[in-house]
Structures are given as C-alpha cells and as structure tokens.
Design a protein around this nucleic acid. Structure first.
Length: 434
RNA sequence: GGCGCUAUCGUCUAGCCUGGUCCAGGACGUCAGCUUCUCAAGCUGAAGACUCGGGUUCGAAUCCCGAUAGCGCUACCA
C-alpha cells in the first residue's frame, strides 16, 4: 500500500492541507504503507521556492515525515509521452487553434466512484467537457499529471479533500483511457473557517507557520487537527501522534465538514504544554523568549530558568503566553498594574511591609515552606488576614494581581530581589501619601 | 444555473452500517458552585442538539423518499 500528499507550492501549507497530510500519514503508518510527498509545481508562474521551503519546513515541524519525494516539474517529459500515446490511439486530439494543447475526448458514460468514506458516487460524463491534458505551454494539467503520477508511483489509496470529488470522474476517465489500475479513493471533509466558508486569511490565520509563531506546539496542533473529522471511537481527546497510529482508521472518518475552533485548539495546546517534559518545554520556549524585549541581555542558567518555568507551565495555553508570563523574573524593576497599585499601594501598609521584609531577611533557609511560615507568623502578629497582605505583596513582587502561588514565587525570586522589591514598593507608598 | 457532497448541543464529536439498552453520551466554550493567597488548573453541577416534512415499522437519531440549507466543482489553477 502506498499513499501520497501532493501540495502545490503556490501558497503556504495551511490548516486544511496539513490535516489532509496528517490523515495520509496516519493511514500510512497504521498500515505500514509508504508515504510519498509529491510537489505539484506544474504551474510555473505561480509556484515559488519560498512556498516550497515553507511547506517542507511545516511538515517537518509537525512531525509528518515522508518516504519519497517527487517534483512534477521534473517529469514533464513523462506527461508529454503519455499524452502522445493517447494522441496516437485517437483518444485525445490537438487543439484546433494550433496552440499545441492536447485534449482528451470525453466518452459518454456513467462513471462510478467507490469512495471509502462516501460510498458509491455516480456521475454522468455528458456533463463534463473534453479535458485539456497538456496546456499550450506544454505543461500538464493537474488532473492529467495527477493520474499519470499516481499510477507511476504506484499509489494505492488517494486520500484528499472532498473538494476533489468532482475532479475524480475526470481522472477516472483518464485512468480508463490509459488502461491504468484504479486506486481506492477516500475523500475527507474540508475544514471551514468560523464564518462557515473556506478557511481564509480573513477568517484568521491559516498558515501552519502562523500557528507556530503564535506559540502552538506541534503536538497540540496535530492533536487538534486529527480530531477534526476523525475520532478514536471513544471519548479520548488528548492524543499524540504515536498514540494515534495504532488507532487510526478511515472507517472512523467523518463525512461532514468541520468548523475550525480556536478555543478548543488553545485548550488542547494548554494540555500539551502542561504535560510537556520541562526540559523539552524550556527548549521550545527559547525562541519565544528571545522575542521578548525584556529578555534581551538577561541570561539565566538552565536550572534557574526551569524553576521559573515550573511556576508558569500550568498557566499558559501558548508558548507566547508562557514567555510573557516570565517577565517578572527578567526585569530589574517590575511594572505595576495601574488599577491594582492605586488600590493596594494607598492602604498605608508600610509597617506591615517593613515587618515582612525583616522576617524574610532573617530567614536562612529561603524555601517556600519557611517563607510561608514566616509570612503567616507576621500576619498573626499584625492581627490581619492573609489576604490583606498577600495581594499587595504579589503586586509589589510581580507587578501583577495574578500568577503563581506567592511562596513558591518568592522562593524562586530569591531573598535579595524579594527584599529589593519590597523596598521599592514602599517608596511608592510614600509617594501616594504626599 | 448545472452537477456533486453533506446535515446530532454555539463548536468538535459518540451513536447510524447490524432500528428498541438514546426523553441521545463525551469534549471545547458558557454559566453556577467547591478548592484556594490571586490567576490558571482541578473537581462538581446546569443550560444546550437528532434541519424540516412524509413514509416503512409495534418501535427511527438510526432505513426510504422529498424539501430546505450549507459547502464544493463547473479553468489551458491545483
């Protein structure tokens, strides 16, 4: 068995293409079949190297590896020879306008597609006009090159988007004219944008690279994509590529178009970030951290970075969000949330903060447990509630109102910086008072 | 317009082939509560769907027909 994914480098690899590729890949790995990648670059004018590179790069990133790689642009002689044969047999003719185009005579008949997902589909070729095989510039048309290649490359199962259903009868006629063995077809449903129509730039991002830039994990995106139009048959939602291989079956593929839902993708991505090995996550995060201006020139050793990362790993849905979350640890002076500082820094907490500072300073063992003990002792001594002090303290130390548990945060921040930040906040108290 | 495909909660889906166990299950999202130093997570609960109309049948989400709607194709693009 053999399958293929055949992208055209006339645009970036988008969500729909990636899903088609994923299904082919899963089918191949499940059946121990080979998976080939065929670049359909017959349109010289529209095909671009940058798109090709982008497609290859995206597929690698997603983890969809191929066994063979072909370029249609290198096979023009083959298509011409096959067209010549059809010409000789009288099954095709040259365009009357002298342009050099080769056109297939459309026989009058009913063609039947036996689709693995849709079942039998019959089409009357009387509704289809004669098909151009070779264009006047001597390049092959899509339907022709596709048939010649699938036969030549011994593709047994053609898994593609169901927007190709109406191309299939045209191709079937070519198969028959050439006496080729007809492969199995499986037309998988399309992915719709939130508006209901095709995914487009307008409806949001469509390029895979775009999702990568937004901080999605390949594992998260692939997980989401495989759930669009397929289900493992039970209620499992979180599933990795290797896990999906033994379970994948086109029998469980849907017939209905699916609407892309960013919210679910985000949730799934968050799940994958949470279950990601911390060292691996640190590596994945690096390029995103580099893009944060606050991270410029700041270098943590791997161990410190990981302890910081642990504080935020469960709190982010994307790598971008995660990188941004780390800010309080990178900056010298935190930027205070405006509303919160107006609220918390005008409560006259100087006495309380001084006590906290003293107690923290006195700690030899600056661990979360000891920090919490010291904090709670101070709170008890002052006769106030934990909440009364912890929120202003969080703001003083992180500049924010939300975030990791306070004591873990303080431990990772370290004694010196904690003291510094408490002192700086107190200066702002005075300002408020004046 | 013609031809084709499709039709279960707002969204992704399970169930449909082999009618009854489905007054339809799960997930995202939404809302409420619990937990908690906040946020997130987690846990509990709620609201929320078989497109419509005809058949067939004792019985239909499941089978058949029709309508409607959505999408796709209708290029010397792929």
């Amino acid at each position: 068995m053999k399958v293929r994914f055949a992208p055209s480098p006339t645009g970036y690899l988008h969500i729909g293409g990636a899903r088609t590729c994923l299904f082919n890949w899963l089918f191949a790995r499940h059946n121990k079949a080979s998976f080939i990648l065929r670049i359909e670059d017959t349109d010289q004018a529209r095909s671009k190297k940058e798109y090709l590179d982008e497609i290859l790069e995206s597929l690698k990133w997603l983890g969809l590896d191929w066994d063979e790689l072909y370029y249609q642009s290198e096979r023009f002689q083959i298509y011409r020879a096959v067209a010549e044969k059809l010409l000789g047999e009288g099954k095709a003719y040259k365009a009357e306008d002298g342009s050099g185009a080769v056109i297939l005579k459309m026989p009058r008949k009913m063609v039947r597609i036996d689709d693995m997902i849709h079942g039998a589909i019959s089409v009357d070729t009387a509704l289809i006009k004669d098909q151009v095989l070779i264009k006047s510039d001597q390049s092959p048309t899509y339907n022709f090159a596709c048939v010649v290649d699938d036969n030549d490359m011994r593709v047994t199962h053609i898994i593609r988007g169901d927007d190709h259903i109406s191309n299939t009868p045209k191709q079937l006629v070519i198969y028959e004219a050439l006496g080729y063995k007809i492969p199995r077809f499986a037309h998988i449903p399309m992915i719709l944008g939130s508006g209901g129509g095709r995914m487009s730039k307008r409806a949001g991002a469509t390029a895979i690279t775009e999702y990568r830039r937004m901080g999605f994990l390949a594992a998260g995106l692939v997980n989401y994509l495989m759930l669009l139009g397929w289900s493992p048959g039970n209620d499992q939602e979180i599933i990795s590529l290797p896990e999906a291989v033994p379970k994948f079956d086109l029998i469980n593929a849907n017939k209905t178009a699916a609407t892309f839902d960013m919210k679910k993708l985000l949730w799934l991505n968050g799940q994958h970030i949470r279950s990601c090995n911390i060292d691996a996550l640190s590596g994945l995060l690096a390029p995103f951290l580099d893009e944060q201006s606050f991270a410029k020139g700041v270098n943590f050793d791997g161990k410190s970075l990981i302890s910081i990362l642990k504080l935020y790993q469960e709190r982010a849905q994307t790598l971008v969000e995660l990188a941004q979350g780390l800010k309080p640890f990178f900056v010298q002076e935190v930027e205070f949330d405006k509303d919160a500082s107006e609220k918390f820094f005008s409560q006259g907490l100087t006495k309380e903060f001084v006590l906290l500072k003293d107690r923290f300073m006195a700690l030899d063992d600056f661990s979360a447990v000891k920090i919490e003990e010291a904090f709670r002792a101070a709170v008890a001594e002052l006769g106030v509630t934990v909440k009364h002090l912890i929120h202003p303290l969080r703001l003083a130390l992180s500049g924010r109102t939300g975030g990791p548990g306070m004591f873990e945060f303080i431990e990772v921040l370290g004694k010196e910086r904690t003291i510094e930040r408490i002192e700086r906040a107190m200066k702002l108290f005075k300002k408020e008072g004046v």
